[in-house]
Each structure stands twice: as structure tokens, then as C-alpha cells.
Design a protein around this nucleic acid. Sequence first.
DNA 1: AGATCGCCCTGCTTGC
DNA 2: TGCAAGCAGGGCGATC
Length: 286
Amino acid sequence: MPELPEVEVVRRGLERWVSGRTVAEAEVLHPRAVRRHLAGGEDFAARLEGRTFGPARRRGKYLWLPLDDPGYSVLGHLGMSGQLLVRPKDAPDEKHLRVRLRFADALDTELRFVDQRTFGGLSLHDNTPDGLPDVIAHIARDPLDPDFDDAAFPVALRAKRTTVKRALLDQSLISGVGNIYADEALWRSRLHYDRPTATLTRPAVVELLGHVRDVMNAALDVGGTSFDSLYVNVNGESGYFDRSLDAYGREDEPCHRCGTPMRRRPWMNRSSYFCPRCQRPPRTSA
DNA sequence: AGATCGCCCTGCTTGC
DNA sequence: TGCAAGCAGGGCGATC
């Protein structure tokens, strides 16, 4: 599934291959691919036609393209399986092609939104005064955002009456951290997922944030290399899945630090992977 | 009002 | 071998 680094790779691809182009025609092939648009896919398409895209932006796992129609943006989320592909016009349709945008220029490419599971989608929104689509105004900055407030984060996290992994996944506190990165950063920090945030010291939170950022940057370094030839897929499948993980998906495999078999625990309808020796559960937890 | 939970979806994997 | 259940997951909206 696309994580924040893949989404950033997609943003760069959109910036390079889509920003500045004018939509000639939009085609919605699956109703669920257009979200929160009561007027329906045809209206969504009609509102895009003739509009020119501005610079591609991202917050957490959300992507958006501002329109030259002032105050509006097209917002996208890839969900579990979404891809944004820049493809030759004559390339065969993908099996799960959901939305196609054709452009009013001489380039040979079109933009396609492909999504097997339709957890993702595109939508059209008013912008807030800071240029953010209004529906994501509540999404906190992500750790790769230069304006992320490092000093405020430990205060805000410790003030939450919750446990540390829940806090990492709380999009109003920090965005873009999914189940995989949460487990990886907790492993690096030797913290158990059920540790109450109130029991963490400020330095421990600073270290945790550093690990979140490191693991994302490492992934971006690997994944951000292969999108700059024509016709390449702007799709988040950038080689990043070769990344080496220390925690996620490693049940029964030896901890890369101490060799103890890693464990998996059901958690919030998901799974948490951890080393039972390096990441001791808090006393209040089972 | 802040926290919690069910649901959306489909292909792959697992187990009987 | 074939079928069914389980699993993956972010985010939204309903509910307490």
C-alpha cells in the first residue's frame, strides 16, 4: 500500500508531468472513485474541463492539485491500492481504471486513476485561506513538512490521554504515519505500542519523532529514484517495497537487534508487530 | 466533545 | 481440489 514516501513520489511525478496542463476531458468510470460529490461523476468531470492544474501539493497521504479556477483544488487519496498513472493515450485501459483525464495539449499522455479496492478517490473542494482543501483542514502537518512543529509535538502527544501507537496514528496530531511506520518507529525506539503517552519523557518523544522521520526519509531515498522517464508510472510502486523492515510483518522472525522471535498482536482491527524483549509492555497492560 | 468502532472493497492466503 | 473465511488497511461518520 502506498505510504507517505510513495505518495511524495507520486506528488513529484504529478508536478513534473501534470502541473501546468489543461484538462480537455474527464471521464469517471466508477462512481465510487469520485468522493463527496453529491452532483455525481459527470458534474465532477464537467467542472474540471478547461481548467489548468497548478503545482502538486501533499499533506500526509493526501495529494492535491490547485486549479486556475481560484479557490478550488482536486484532492486525491490513494487509499490501499490507488495509483495515479501518467500513461500514453493509446495504452490499453487498466482493469481497475476509475478516472481518466485527457489534456488539451500535444503531449501524448493522459492521467489515470486506477484503484482495485476503491478505498481511494478523487474529490473537488474549496480551499481554505492557506490553500488547503477545506475537508483536510483538520489534518496535522506531516513529519516531512518543513513547518512541522517539532517543539510542540512532545507537548501535544503527552497531553493526549491515550497510548503511543494510537497517538502516532492520530491524524490531528501528526499525519502520514500508517500502521507500518508506527510499528517501525516504535521498534527503533524500543517502545511498546500500548505505552501510555503520559509516561513518556520529552526526550523519548523527541527520539520517537526522529525515528518516524528517519524511516520515512530512508524509504523516500529508495523510492524517489525511478520516476523521471517518460511514460513511467506515477504510481508509488517505485521499488520502495524492497525496503527492509525491522518490525512490520515479521511475526516469528528474529528481532534484528536481539534475535528474540517477533510477535504479532491484534490491535484495533489491525496488527501490531513488536519484539517482546526490546519493547516491554507497560505494567498496566497484559 | 472527544474517543471508539463499524464499514467501505477486492484479491490473495489460509484452512478445512 | 474447491470453497469459504480471514486478512490487509485509512479515514469517515455514527454512536456513546
